[in-house]
Design a protein around this nucleic acid. Structure first.
Length: 476
RNA sequence: GGCGGCGUAGCCAAGCGGCCUAAGGCGUUGGUUUGCAAAACCAAUAUCCGUGGGUUCGAAUCCCACCGCCGCCUCCA
């Protein structure tokens, strides 16, 4: 089944056709590294990860780029004031790059915990100033941008399609203007490509004097450098639609004369307990804070990807607990299958089971092909698991097929732990002790030993064949 | 003010005109299994999809009105 995606640009669900057969170029707006990223940021990054993994599941070769913004966007409006990185730098009395480095590491660490596949490149804004300047020069040469003193602005009236992505018209924007008009600009909506400000800590030389780049140009410059002027997919949070992505389109298409991005995907905001997350409400949790509360990292991942990306998902602690249980259910099935596969029970793969597995994968793919219908995909997964649990008479070849199916599903979901087979000797000894007690029907002793094993952080479960299975109650 | 979305069981959440006497997960209750557990399996947990109208042979799904909630509109993923 072909992939269908909702394209913000056309406001329609469209069939996805890559520019080059079998290959996909994908750009995701990454973090601005001035603070620890929170779960809301990560929902957007996880949606990009889910999409990328699914494209790969379908056999496409994905080139994925995610920028790291280490030169700040401006705090107030696009024209005045300090930028966020600079503010953090001043507050902490540190160099902006030091701040950026610190939070970049925090971001990368959390990404790793959430099992986000590393993009092919994480380009940094400060390492692409030259590319940005080159693009600004082109825009000035072509007449889309104008220079006023040491500043360069983009003239939005020169770009006919300005507003196409967000649905804003210049008239609407004029009417709703909430900020004071900068006298230098020809039109209130014109945005800065290059700014001069002697107070700014980060400054670079340019044809227009010392200054720093505007806050949209980096994505235009870096995406074209790594993916070409025209590419397939661009992802980001819903708030990026305007002005950021609108301005990106204006810059990129004006500079190259080509269509910029074919499919725009925007993840809606996460709510926490039904409310918008914000600093003032104190509900902007970071990954580390949730781990500190005892939640598991894959439960966080599961929770954040388990609802549709174009829906405001309501994130709750209860939801996180439910996610832990759901993952356990899959994990438990993997344990069962691993045992069955190792049982050396010979036999052919029964047609009925072969079909169960292949149907599961087909339906899973169909579900996600429908604009990433993850709820449906998870339902397929759990239906499959129920059937597998019922077929406990499987031979090892059959178990291997089922295991393979779950692993393929998890190549997209990315929530399973690799099963740690290393059971410590002391746990094994206790298990032996319990077994002996059980054989002698000394139930009290057997139960005490089980409690002891529990206290050591392991769970012991008896299997029907008289053996037992260990599970470590994982720390996060 | 402009634009957009949502309201489905105790909770989360699919379904978007007939296969719905409404998926799936979590939770709860009962049962099977077990020495007891755990896990698993079975069954029950919405006769109905915010409210009121309408269209239709047929609506959770389309239209209208109303109520409630939420998001975006140059800080934000």
């Amino acid at each position: 089944m072909s992939l269908k995606l909702y394209n913000t640009l056309t406001r329609k669900i469209e069939e996805f056709t890559p520019l080059q057969q079998g290959k996909v170029g994908m750009y995701s707006c990454g973090p601005t590294v001035y603070s620890h990223p929170h779960i809301g940021n990560f929902r957007s990054f996880l949606v990009a990860d889910l999409l990328k993994r699914f494209l790969e599941f379908k056999g496409l070769k994905v080139t994925h780029i995610m920028n790291i913004t280490d030169v700040g966007h401006l705090v107030d409006d696009a024209d005045e004031g300090a930028d966020k990185l600079e503010e953090a730098a001043k507050k902490q009395k540190k160099d902006p790059l030091e701040i950026a480095k610190f939070y970049t590491e925090s971001f990368l660490e959390a990404s790793k915990l959430l099992n986000i596949k590393s993009p092919d490149k994480y380009p940094k804004a400060t390492e692409h100033i030259k590319e940005m300047i080159d693009m600004i020069k082109i825009l000035v040469d072509k007449g889309y941008a104008y220079v006023v003193g040491n500043n360069v602005y983009y003239d939005v009236t020169k770009f006919a399609n300005y507003g196409q992505l967000s649905g804003n018209t210049l008239d609407d924007l004029n009417a709703g203007a909430r900020i004071e008009v900068n006298q230098e600009k020809k039109n209130p909506q014109d945005f800065a490509l290059w700014k001069h400000d002697t107070k700014h800590l980060q400054q670079w030389d340019s044809p227009w004097g010392k200054g720093f780049p505007g806050w949209h140009i980096e994505c235009s410059a870096m995406s074209s450098k790594y993916l070409g002027a025209e590419f397939d997919i661009h992802t980001g949070g819903e708030d990026n639609i305007f002005p950021h992505h609108e301005c990106e389109i204006a810059q990129s298409e004006a500079a190259s004369g080509k269509k910029f991005v074919h499919y725009w995907l925007h993840t809606h905001f996460l709510l926490f307990d039904g409310e918008k997350m914000s600093k003032s409400k104190g509900n902007l949790y970071t990954i580390q804070e949730l781990l500190d509360k005892g939640f598991k990292k894959n439960a966080i991942r599961y929770s954040l990807i388990s609802s549709h990306y174009r829906q405001n998902y309501n994130f709750t602690f209860d939801g996180l607990k439910a996610a832990e249980q759901a993952i356990d259910k899959i994990q438990q099935c993997v344990l069962l299958l691993t045992d069955l596969r190792g049982n050396k029970k010979e036999g052919k793969i029964r047609e009925q089971l072969q079909k169960l597995a292949s149907n599961c994968l087909t339906e899973f793919e169909n579900a996600l092909s429908d604009d990433l219908n993850i709820s449906k995909a998870l339902a397929v997964c759990f239906d499959f698991i129920r059937e597998v649990n019922k077929a406990s008479d499987m031979n090892s070849a059959e178990a291997a097929v089922m295991l393979d199916t779950i692993n393929k599903i998890d190549s997209v979901l990315g929530v399973l732990e690799t099963i740690d087979k290393e059971v410590p000797d002391n746990i094994k000894e206790l298990a032996e002790k319990r077994k002996t007690a059980k054989l002698g029907k000394y139930w009290k002793i057997a139960d005490d030993v089980r409690a002891e094993i529990m206290a050591l952080g392991w769970t012991i479960e008896d299997t029907p064949d008289g053996g037992c299975r260990f599970k470590r109650r994982e720390e996060t």
